[in-house]
Each structure stands twice: as C-alpha cells, then as structure tokens.
Design a binder for these strands. Structure first.
Lengths: 204, 204
DNA sequence: GTCTATATCGGGATAGAC
DNA sequence: GTCTATCCCGATATAGAC
C-alpha cells in the first residue's frame, strides 16, 4: 500500500533528521536511523537511494518552507520595519517547527555547503533577494541606512540558529549561575530589536 | 630533540584544526591529519593519546585565549558601551586568529558539546560572567536595559561565528547578485551596532 | 515493499623495530 | 621520538528471498 510506504518514508525522514542533527552527516549511521525509524536498513536505500539522498531530502524540504515563509512576509506588506520583524519571526518559526534543522544547518555551513545543490541554493538566493527588497524599501522611506542583505541575514540567522541548536548544550549547563535559561520568544524579541537597531538610520 | 618534537606537535595541531573544521570530528581521519602535518600517524597517538585528545587540545587553547582576551577588555575599563564594543572586537579577533575554529565551534554546538570538558566550560563560564558585569555597569549607569548575558552572547557569537565559518560556502556563491562579498571588518562593525542597539535603553 | 545475510572497505588504534 | 605493518571493528551498500 502507498499509505504504509508514505508512513515509512516519513518515519525514516524524522529519524534521520534527529540522527543527522546529533551526529552530523559522517557521524550518523544508517543502522541507527533505521532502528529509530522502526524500519529496515534496506528500505532507506530503496526509498532514498543513498545516505546522501536522504540528507538532501531534508535540506530541500526545509529551504522550500523557508522561501515560502519569507515570500508570505513580503506579500502581506506593511512598513519595512514591520516586515523585517516579521522576517525574523518567520525564520524562527521555520526553525522551531523542525527542531533538528538548526544543528544540521550549522554543520552544513561548517562543511562549506558540501551538500547544498542548485535547488537549495535557489531557495537561499530567493530569501536573500526578498530580504534585499525589504531593506531597499526602508532606505527609500528614509528610515533605514543601506546595509548588505547578507550581513543582515547573518544577524538574524546567526543568533537564532545558534540558540536553537544549542538546546542540548544549554541543558548540560543549566545549573550554572547566569545559566542559559532563556525562552525562544525572548530570543526572537531580542533578535528583532538587535536587527532593527542594526539597520536603523541614526537619529542622534 | 625537544625542538623537533615541539615543531611536530605544532604541525599536527594545525593540520588537525583544518581537518576538524572541514570534516568534523567524525569525518576527520587521523590518516589525513598525519599526511597534511607531514607526520606519522603513530606520532599523533604518542603526543596526543587519541583523536579526542588532539581535538580537546584545540578547544583548550582557543577558550583559554578567549577568556584572556575578555579579561583584558574588562581590565582596560571605560564606559560600558565602549567595553561592549571592545568585547565584540575581542571575540572576533580570537576567531580571526584561528581561522578553522569557528567551524569547529559550530559543529561542537550542534553536537551538544560532546567534547566540552570542565576546563572549557570554566573558560566559557568566566566569559559569560565578565559579560554580565559589563551589562550590569550599563544598567547601573542608566544607559542599558537589563538583558540576559547569554542572549547578548548569542547576538555576538552567532553572526561572527556563522560569518567566519561560512567562508568556503560564500566562496562558492560569490558570483551571485547580492553575493556575500563582505569584509570581516564590516561584519564586526555591524555586529557592534546591532548588539549595542539590542541593549540600549530606548530614548523614544 | 519488506526482510536477512553478507560483501567490502575504510579508519582508529597499537605492537614492536629502530 | 619516529617509523612500518597490522589488528579489528563498524559502516555503507547490495544481493536475493519472500
């Protein structure tokens, strides 16, 4: 039945995401992925062709969702500042809905984007372009200073990704004074404030 | 001779840093590290005990340097805002002097700090505490609003680390419009502006 | 589509000579 | 301190039955 096959595929994907996040592409083993998915190892090769194919499926899904979310932000319009705040929130939501993705992405960056193919690159490029439009509107309105979209993107994705990916690490050090007991909402608000402050035209 | 042994150790460390950054702990192979270091594989085990021991030596060195740098920032004093800007610059410099470290650290975070031992944790904790003191001075002076040190730290380390670690990735997409052709100095300035904007007491 | 069994190989680690 | 040769396990991938 196609039903069972779909469920099987979905379980494998979820299991793989956890494993790739925790151990990285090289550290992950197909045996463990199969075990956690309550599937057979041979099924993974049947459905996804290879370990790399499985990994790519996850990247594709997430970047498509990210491009969709940012496009929606642009389409609902509003003041550039509001759009930028919504942009931050959209990126955060895509990450929060895929708890394993931030760690996967950190590793992917560290690897020089070894597994980033044209599809993923296209989505990433679209996101950067849309962000560029938001910033350009702000400059045109006289409320923002010119800033490189990629720079702003670092300011958004850097803190959000690092925070979300560091959940296991934070859990280990939660007992410390000044321990990292912060909520995701607090992080999003802080990033919004930072990012807006980073592009605002100085009034002093 | 101890001289040769020291040189050998140093070459192994440098080679390992490159390899760990590019491939991760699991992806790195001791054979390749030895090859690039023009050393013998058995030497690595002789000097560093194990692959993990070699990796830890790199973490220790970098975090000790980071704690030193931040302590120096505190000792030179000045207004809280100036100290915070210097803090950003200090973190950036420690990273820039060890080009492979940012990628290593991104991976380490993604792994839940699997290799973070008490020594590294102690340095990290000291850095957070010192940052907390800077922020507290700002609050006392009435120019900063209370902010969680860990949150601020994410705002600093997130963009800086992601930017520095993404050098290989950026090189691959440098040809795109809005391509990521940004200098490290521009990034540091942008992060300083963002971070200060994130903790400044609102004057409106 | 799902399983078991297995081919095959790469890589961490060490023994032991010099 | 430095080298060669090797043990040995674990991991990707596939063959082939059902």
């Amino acid at each position: 039945m196609a039903r069972n096959a779909d469920a099987s595929r979905a379980r494998i994907r979820a299991s793989a995401a956890t494993e790739f996040a925790a151990r990285g592409f090289d550290g992950a083993t197909v045996d463990r992925i199969a075990l956690k998915a309550r599937a057979n190892k041979a099924m993974i090769y049947y459905h996804f062709k290879s370990k790399a194919g499985l990994y790519n499926a996850i990247l594709h899904d997430t970047f498509a969702a990210m491009a969709d979310a940012v496009r929606a932000v642009r389409e609902s319009g509003g003041a550039p500042e509001a759009q930028l705040a919504a942009y931050v929130e959209a990126i955060a939501r895509v990450g929060a809905e895929r708890p394993h993705f931030p760690a996967i992405w950190l590793r992917e960056v560290a690897e020089g984007g070894r597994h980033v193919d044209v599809t993923v690159a296209g989505h990433f490029r679209e996101v950067l372009t849309l962000l560029g439009h938001i910033l350009a509107e702000g400059v045109a309105a006289g409320t923002m200073r010119p800033a490189h979209p990629f720079l702003v993107q670092m300011g958004v994705v850097g803190p959000l990704t690092l925070f979300m990916a560091s959940r296991p690490l934070r859990a280990r050090f939660a007992h410390l004074p000044h321990g990292p007991d912060v909520s995701i909402d607090a992080v999003v608000r802080h990033v919004q404030t930072m990012v807006l402050g980073g592009v605002a035209r100085q009034t002093t």
